[in-house]
């Protein structure tokens, strides 16, 4: 990384763009259609969604970094399996750390931590970016894409928890007294808790994003 340091500053405009672009116009979920797989089942509550977002960001960033370091010594034919092994090793680390420090969230995420391995964002970024770029830009690209993914996850998690359970991060936001069972008028939207609603929410996010940014419209 030192050679990189001499040529351009660590946070040059070009490098910063690697972080900001995936959050907006190159968002991995809403524009590139990557990484929807393991994500949506964990967004019923905000907390697991947030933990998942951080885990994916860490794994994407470090796998990008490692693969980019090794990119000149990996034979092309077996690169997929090398990538899978690197990613799987990182995911095992993340899984053990989650089990040690946030056991309850780790139980809620269940198999979805393991499924980070096959998260298309990671493989997609490894193939598309890390194999052709220096370690430092690859690391930033990994962080950018992880955050871009995390933002969508957290937004979906926020609305599903708020409208479906009336809480945010486990704290009650909508007061108990206005619920029907306590003589009020309000009822939680049970639809928000079922899995398909996450897809519909993402559809709506895509709709809003493409209405604001016409260049993303398909066909």
């Amino acid at each position: 990384m030192s050679e990189n340091n001499q040529r351009e500053p660590w946070f040059s405009a070009k490098n910063l763009k690697l972080i900001t672009e995936p959050i907006g116009i190159k968002n991995p979920i809403t524009v590139l259609v990557l990484g929807i797989c393991s994500a949506l089942a964990v967004t019923v509550k905000l907390k697991p969604a947030f933990v998942m977002a951080i885990s994916v960001t860490v794994v994407t960033a470090f796998s990008n970094l490692l693969i980019s370091w090794m990119r000149n010594s990996i034979p092309n034919r077996i690169r997929i399996i090398v990538q899978l092994v690197v990613v799987a090793a990182l995911v095992i680390l993340v899984d053990e750390i989650l089990k040690a420090f946030v056991y309850d969230v780790s139980k809620q995420l269940s198999v979805f931590v393991g499924l980070i391995i096959t998260n298309c964002i990671i493989m997609g970024r490894l193939e598309a970016f890390a194999l052709g770029n220096k370690p430092w830009p690859s690391f930033l690209d990994g962080i950018g894409n992880g955050v871009g993914y995390g933002v969508i996850l957290v937004v979906v998690g926020f609305f599903r928890e708020l409208l479906g359970s009336g809480t945010i991060w486990g704290y009650r936001v909508i007061p108990e007294s206005i619920y029907v069972k306590n003589g009020g008028f309000y009822e939680n939207n049970g639809m928000m808790i079922v899995p398909p609603m996450a897809l519909i929410l993402i559809g709506i996010i895509i709709w809003i994003q493409r209405t604001r940014n016409k260049s993303l419209i398909e066909e």
Binding site: L199, W207, K214, E218
Partner: peptide
């Protein structure tokens, strides 16, 4: 804006 990906979701 909903065409393609959006409506598929």
């Amino acid at each position: 804006p909903l065409r393609g990906l959006g409506i598929a979701f």
